[in-house]
């Protein structure tokens, strides 16, 4: 289908985008890569009266180091992050996860911040943000605030962003010495939304496991000095805690089993590749 009619603002600067958002009073949507937004508009699931195009907003397209994190601007595409030279060494989890995110053809256009804004519970980038303890930078004409992944991601396609705010950047923490990372997922075909996705970080003392696709948002569980003989029991408890439900793709029981099996696999892998 085709989208309904809308006014289009081509924001040349961040300030213009923020002014347009403020003026529209909740009727506007931000168009960054459009890979989820346009699909929803074509299906008439969304009907914004104003579309604010930031895809060509030069000041929002960047990748830079900010302290111990990598900051990625709102107009930066997934393929641009995947091509960032330090990704494999300094953000190994994203290096492993991004190839699962959509397809070659959609990563050329889809943005990092757009995926976080869309906040699909089975999506890879929100899961990595939660697992790594990253943050997002929100800006409006009223000011700027920085939210942790936990404070930003509220539920099924729901974030703490208010109507007049733009997610101007996302920040993913770099690998620290001694940490190991692993990511895997099951999906119906490569590039589809995951049925269950798991990400693990281990540093020898602490083990963190993020799970996507089961609860209504990415969920992270942390253990200190987790012994292998307790792992199955802990994963089983987590699988039930997440309260996954049946849907057209998989049963709740299947999802629990994936949390147990894939959870063990990534935790073992993260521990074995610590460096």
């Amino acid at each position: 289908m085709k989208p309904r009619k809308f006014d289009l603002v081509r924001a040349e600067t961040t300030a213009e985008a923020l002014a347009a958002l403020s003026e529209a009073g909740g009727e506007a949507k931000i168009f960054a890569g459009g890979q989820s937004l346009m699909a929803m508009m074509n299906l008439r699931l969304l009907d914004p009266s104003v579309l604010i195009d930031i895809s060509q907003t030069a000041e929002l397209s960047y990748i830079k180091e900010v302290g111990d994190k990598l900051e990625i601007g709102a107009a930066t595409t997934q393929v641009e992050l995947l091509s960032w030279p330090g990704l494999a060494d300094r953000l190994p989890l994203l290096h492993q996860a991004i190839p699962h995110l959509g397809h070659f053809q959609t990563r050329n256009r889809g943005t990092i911040c757009g995926s976080l804004a869309h906040s699909d519970p089975s999506s890879e980038l929100p899961l990595c943000l939660a697992t790594l303890g990253g943050e997002v930078v929100l800006k409006s004409t009223r000011g700027e605030r920085v939210l942790s992944a936990a404070d930003f991601q509220l539920g099924m396609m729901t974030t703490a962003r208010t109507d007049d705010e733009l997610i101007v950047a996302a920040r993913y923490p770099f690998k620290k010495p001694g940490e190991g990372f692993a990511f895997t997922e099951v999906a119906q075909r490569r590039g589809d939304f995951a049925i269950v996705a798991v990400a693990a970080v281990a540093n020898g003392n602490t083990t963190r496991l993020g799970v996507g696709g089961v609860a209504d948002k990415p969920t992270v569980k942390s253990w200190t000095n987790l012994a292998d003989e307790n792992l199955d029991e802990e994963l089983n408890a987590l699988a039930w805690e997440l309260k996954g439900s049946d849907d057209i793709h998989a049963t709740a029981r299947y999802r629990r089993e994936m949390v147990r099996r894939l959870g063990r696999r990534v935790i073992e892998e993260a521990n074995s590749c610590r460096s």
Partner: peptide, 27 residues
């Protein structure tokens, strides 16, 4: 499909392949 799934409408914009059904003509 007109929602970015099937890939039939894929074209190159500035040399990069993209879904033309998820792109506005004015862009």
């Amino acid at each position: 499909c007109e929602h970015g799934v099937c890939g039939a409408c894929t074209v190159q914009i500035d040399g990069k392949v993209q879904r033309s059904c998820l792109t506005l003509a004015v862009q």
